[in-house]
Amino acid sequence: MTNGSGPGPAPSTHWVDAVGAAVFALVAGFALLLLVAPSLIVIAVSFEPRAYISFPPSGFSLKWYWAVFENRQLTDSVQVSLMVALWVSLLCMALGVPAAFASIRGTFPAKAGLNAFLLAPQMMPGMVIGIATLFFGAYIAFRASNTMLVLALSVFCLPFVIRITMARLADLDPRLDEASANLGAGKLETFVRVTLPQLGPALLAAGAFTFIEAFDNVTVALFTSDVRGRPLPVELYYLVQNDSTPAIAAVSAIEIGLSCLVMLVLGRTVGLERLGGPATKT
């Protein structure tokens, strides 16, 4: 299909090439539009003054934002989600960073097996982790609660932290540590003054990604969260199913705004390009 002129040198400005390049640019433009347009539309819709969503909005009003802040159920759920996200990030960092050290710097038999096991949760859909934790909890007579949610989400998010830390650790030059040791620094000093500063941005990225995922997650949370004191995504899920008030758009717009802020900070400290790779996980 690409070779209309048979073997041998083809003119470099063949019409196929021109058409190909145009189609490619068009599809890329469309895909980029597709990626950002829905978020922009949600933000626009959140300023709707009437009681139902329409686009473009019929006016400009912040009343749905006030409605969100006055809705006790929503503000409570934000608090629940913040706590859950905080605990999940702490737990994942505490478990994941040492594990990444072992799987990069360690020398012991079956290291490949360890790596496969540590990253296994990323093969599991959130729903399956959620249901499995729910059933296991029931079996040992432990009810669905936000503690259970924290544990299930930590399983779900652990590969994030491990992958981001591993990627950075593998990039570090071990000779820097050797140099530090040769200059008389102890192991602890080397770790704190040489290894950790190089690891810092990666740890920040890992923590931020875990926090956001734990805050946003609905696939695990629907099965394991507390019936009273639901986290925000579960609250929103039921809201979206039954209702289409612009208040949902306002919550969404706030979430979009906050994630842009996080991206700005991470882009400055870690570099956006480095963020993409290890973050590929649902």
Binding site: P38, S39, V42, I212, P233, S244, M263, L272, G276
Partner: peptide, 25 residues
Amino acid sequence: ILIAVISPLLTSALVRTYAWLVILG
């Protein structure tokens, strides 16, 4: 391009599904 690709990852899937409700609904 990077912002366009990464920003949806930081937005919840629920919010993005809701956006499609607005568009298609």
